[in-house]
Design a protein around this nucleic acid. Structure first.
Length: 952
DNA sequence: GGTTTAGCCTAA
DNA sequence: TTAGTTAGGCTAAACC
């Protein structure tokens, strides 16, 4: 593949910001309705009913303890008087959009919130799309006018089409920076990063009053270059008191069928509104269809008409005016369901949920596919000016879990189960009494609160805010786009700063793979002596920095010859035989970016140490995490052949250096620590992967080994170029080395006490086996490595096997989950075949592309394949299908058990799998008690998040 | 019945 | 219009 070459940034034609389109301001201002004191609802037919609701709400709020949550408090703080000539407008921007309305041409707007909690819309004028081309041969400065006229006379938006140039200049013309999203282009040029603070000085903006186009309290016009963008440091690290709405809906479905918006009603919508930085919601309410008994601490708003309820909820959203809308699976279920339902009910103007007046929210289908994240189809319902965080999507991106049901995620991170109302009885409860509907509402309220609690606990918002600030991309990219746009954003910023233009590559991805890291052949076995682990910290970033690897430093042989460059003075040759300019001659962009990231991380960590305020600490911790992830993704970006700027010379040089380094490390350590050099033992590198070596120095004493480890790390570090650093990190003792990428050990960083049990790659950390296997292996490892109780581990294992064969193991322990990763499979597989069968039963609730399919293996005819015996756990329960316990013993437990016991017990290990305990009489039908517990607790529908029916 | 391949998930 | 990398263990199906 041709390596991209950067161009020095010399002014090219057409000049930046040259106007090819009519000026925005010259467009006739659209007629906009003046907003009444209570917002746009004042002219809606639903207003009177909503007023009734408000009145009822006030009464309700007075009754509840939580009087603060009354209707008076829905709206934002009142707007102070603003004097255009005296007052600057200062706000935290949350989104920059390039929405092009009809006839508007290109338009940019930025939404945000002031420190006082007022909402802001800033219309940005006079910033037009542009890109660069290399000056064609013979093209003179005097040709620019004629060239511009030619472009302006092209049909449609020809100025953006590269083909036009190719027609014009015969040769293919390289373009630069022509593939940057418009909003990001603007942010790069104005040094705006995601979620930073903007200051518009007095006199530099025009306050819109009559011509307002949004519901924002402050709406201004500003020229693109007339504001100050504050770097998110010091006082500008703060976060505005953003309003976060967390909501959940309930639908009354028909038995056994997933709810469909054109048939099944929305019966409840629960809402929690929290100010960013506060620990409790200040609004809690639930909109119910039909009456509902009082709920302490929450407002109940009841409606007898579904359309009116939906419209009242829309009015509530507009009144609260949230900056961030969150929930669980809101992107793929709640928001599309609400808009579709409103459409089916002909509930007028329901979709006016965003901040722009008269702009309806529309649901779009999107598809995301990457090797790292897999494929997924999803929906997107943009609410103008409001960020969305679907906590389900966040979880799927940021945490590898066996199951992503709200229930399972809450159990994992909040340590609690959610209040479950059974899927099949929702309709029953709805059709019952005010009391039964109250029960439903309590459940719905809790489901609205849990996403907020998860967000607080995991600090999703703070961490994403810091990620947006560090990488410079808009917040909404973090859930909707891939990893590479973040690197690209940083690269563009640094490139432009240093006077480079980034080429736009013709994106034909190549299938060629390059060689990666070395995995040292393991000396498998059980080690009852301390094993020291030495790691290169941030190996790939440090290689890129040490050797100045970059797009801007890459040389070819011709250039070297032409310029008479001297090896090791002007340039170096990588082990992959690529040439790079030395940093003394020209420092690369990527090394500079990496240094900045690493330096910023050091500062963040130092600040974190000093900081005592828990909120500021959380921000700093989020920042250092974002900086670490960013540094580590630069390498992957250069190797992404189907990306924006692949450069295999860089990525394969990085891995080549890495391979050389790990080999050298092994040799240096073994050469130095040997009997011949006066040591008591010959050290052995027993394993190593990419950036680490595991060393058996020989001594049995932990302290001694730790001393040798840190000494050896320093010895090796000295042999490499800065900032490459080998660190002694920990000792494993004892250490069970099963295979490449598979080991377990007790992890010690200090000689007094081990820190933890560490397991890599084995069943305890894998998600594609059943829980029984991971708990059994985990328990055995604890007994073997911590208690050193081989006998106990054996007995435990035999007992489990006996229980399994007697059907005493709860079915929840036998559920296997696997991702449905593709649309077309070559062969038959258990989870794929089951997903297909489930689709036949009820398409709506069947697993979708990217979902994890949960299944159990049930008894079948003799010799049947596993894919014929896989079954939905709930379906198996309901239909009393017997578990194939033999499968679980032979295909799930057996091999993993042998792999950990054999290195310790030797041949005797096989006795675990035969003997009296395997000859227990089997009970044909499953035990009911434990199974029901399972059904209620862990199996929920991903769409409506309700538990499925048990066999009650 | 042994070997190859597809697919999943993890290590780093 | 969009998508971070390679190495590698392990299971079950497919193949011969």
């Amino acid at each position: 593949m041709a390596s991209p070459s950067f161009k020095e940034n010399v002014p090219l034609s057409p000049p930046k910001k040259e106007t090819y389109k009519p000026d925005l301001d010259s467009q006739p201002a659209a007629k906009r309705r003046k907003l009444g004191p209570s917002g746009p609802a004042s002219s809606q037919p639903t207003q009177s009913s909503f007023a009734d609701v408000l009145a009822r709400l006030k009464e309700d709020a007075e009754e509840t303890q939580d009087a603060e949550g009354g209707a008076d408090c829905w709206a934002r703080p009142a707007l102070p008087e603003i004097d255009e000539r005296r007052d600057p407008i200062i706000f935290q921007q949350i989104d920059a959009e390039d929405k092009t309305e009809q006839g508007d041409g290109s338009a940019l707007r930025m939404f945000g919130v002031t420190e006082g909690g007022n909402s802001v819309l800033m219309h940005i004028t006079d910033f037009l799309p542009y890109f660069y081309i290399a000056v064609p041969r013979g093209f003179m400065n005097t040709d620019t006018t004629a060239f511009r006229d030619y472009l302006n006379n092209l049909d449609g938006d020809g100025a953006r089409g590269e083909c036009q140039f190719n027609n014009l200049f015969r040769d293919v013309v390289d373009t630069y920076e022509s593939n940057v999203p418009y909003a990001l282009r603007f942010m790069i040029d104005t040094k705006v990063v995601g979620m930073n603070w903007i200051e518009v000085p007095a006199g530099k903006y025009k306050l819109l009053k009559e011509g307002k186009r949004s519901h924002c309290q402050i709406e201004i016009n500003v020229r693109w270059d007339q504001f100050i963008s504050h770097a998110p440091e010091g006082n500008w690290s703060k976060i505005a008191p953003l309003r976060i709405l967390s909501f959940d809906i309930e639908c009354a479905g028909r038995k056994g069928i997933f709810p469909e918006a054109n048939i099944d009603p929305v019966i409840q919508i629960a809402n929690m509104v929290t100010r960013q930085g506060e620990s409790k919601p200040f609004i809690r309410n639930v909109f119910t269809l039909n009456t509902c008994s009082h709920i302490v601490g929450s407002q109940v708003l009841s409606f007898d008409d579904e359309a009116k309820m939906l419209q009242a909820w829309r009015d509530f959203v507009n009144e609260v005016d949230p900056d961030v809308v969150i929930g669980y699976n809101i992107s793929n279920f709640d928001l599309p369901y609400l808009t579709e339902r409103a459409h089916a009910l002909k509930a007028k103007n329901f979709a006016l949920l965003g901040r722009m007046a008269n702009v309806k929210a529309v649901t779009k289908d999107t598809h995301f596919s990457s090797k790292a994240f897999g494929q997924r189809d999803s929906k997107e319902t943009a609410l103008d000016g409001r960020l969305q965080v679907d906590i389900l999507q966040y979880m799927q991106r940021e945490h590898k879990l066996r199951s992503y049901t709200l229930n399972s995620v809450c159990a994992q991170f909040l340590g609690e189960q959610k209040e479950d109302v059974h899927h099949s009885i929702i309709t029953e409860l709805q059709n019952g009494t005010p009391e039964s509907r109250r029960r439903l509402a309590v459940y719905c309220l809790k489901d609205a609160y849990l996403p907020q609690r998860l967000m607080d606990k995991l600090m999703c918002f703070i961490n994403y805010t810091e990620m947006a600030r560090v990488t410079g991309v808009p917040f909404n990219y973090l859930l909707s786009r891939g990893q590479s746009i973040k690197v690209l954003s940083q690269l563009f910023r640094k490139a432009n700063e240093d006077g480079y233009l980034v080429p736009t590559l013709k994106g034909e991805g190549s299938d060629e793979q390059y060689e990666g890291a070395t995995v040292i052949e393991p000396r498998r076995g059980y080690y009852n002596v301390p094993i020291a682990t030495l790691d290169f910290s941030s190996l790939y970033p440090s290689i890129m920095m040490a050797h100045n690897l970059c797009y801007t430093t890459l040389l070819d042989k011709t250039t070297i010859d032409r310029l008479n460059l001297v090896k090791d003075v002007d340039y170096i040759r990588s082990p992959n035989n690529d040439f790079f300019v030395t940093s003394g001659k020209r420092k690369g962009l990527l090394p500079t970016i990496l240094e900045d990231l690493i330096g910023a991380r050091k500062r963040a960590k130092a600040d974190l140490k000093k900081e005592t305020d828990p909120f500021k600490r959380a921000v700093l911790d989020g920042r250092q995490l974002a900086l670490k992830i960013s540094a580590n993704s630069v390498y992957g970006f250069t190797g992404a052949t189907i990306g924006k700027l692949p450069c295999l010379a860089i990525s394969s040089s990085v891995t080549a250096y890495g391979r050389q380094m790990i080999e050298k490390t092994k040799q240096e350590v073994e050469a130095e620590y040997c009997i011949a050099n006066g040591h008591l033992h010959d050290a052995e590198v027993i394993y190593g992967d990419t950036d680490s070596v595991m060393v058996k120095f020989g001594p049995t004493d932990l302290r001694e080994v730790m001393a040798l480890g840190s000494q050896a790390a320093d010895l090796v570090t000295a042999k490499f170029i800065k900032p490459i650093k080998l660190e002694f990190e920990k000792v494993y003792f004892p250490y069970l080395l099963i295979n490449k990428k598979r080991y377990a050990g007790l992890y010690w960083t200090k000689p007094e006490k081990y820190d933890k049990m560490d397991t890599k790659g084995i069943e305890t950390v894998r998600r594609d086996n059943c829980r029984l296997v991971s708990t059994v292996i985990s328990t055995c490892l604890n007994k073997l490595l911590i208690d050193r109780d081989v006998k106990g581990a054996e007995e435990y294992t035999k007992q489990i096997i006996s229980d399994l064969l007697q059907n005493k193991v709860d079915m929840s322990q036998l559920v296997i989950t696997k991702a449905l990763a593709k649309t077309d499979y070559a062969g038959k597989q258990a989870h794929v075949e089951l997903a297909e069968r489930m689709k036949q039963r009820d398409a709506g609730s069947a697993p979708a592309l990217g979902d994890r399919v949960a299944y159990v293996i049930i008894k079948g005819v003799k010799g049947a394949a596993a894919y014929e015996k896989s079954e939905d756990p709930i379906y198996a329960l309901e239909n009393n299908m017997p578990i194939d316990t033999k499968y679980y013993l032979e295909n799930q437990l057996s091999n993993p058990l042998m792999r950990i016991f054999e290195p310790i017990m030797g041949e005797k290990a096989s006795s675990l799998l035969s003997g009296d305990h395997t000859r227990s009489i089997q009970i044909a039908t499953p035990t009911v008690g434990g199974l029901m517990k399972f059904a209620v607790k862990t199996v929920t529908c991903m769409g409506c998040k309700n538990a499925f029916e048990s066999n009650q």
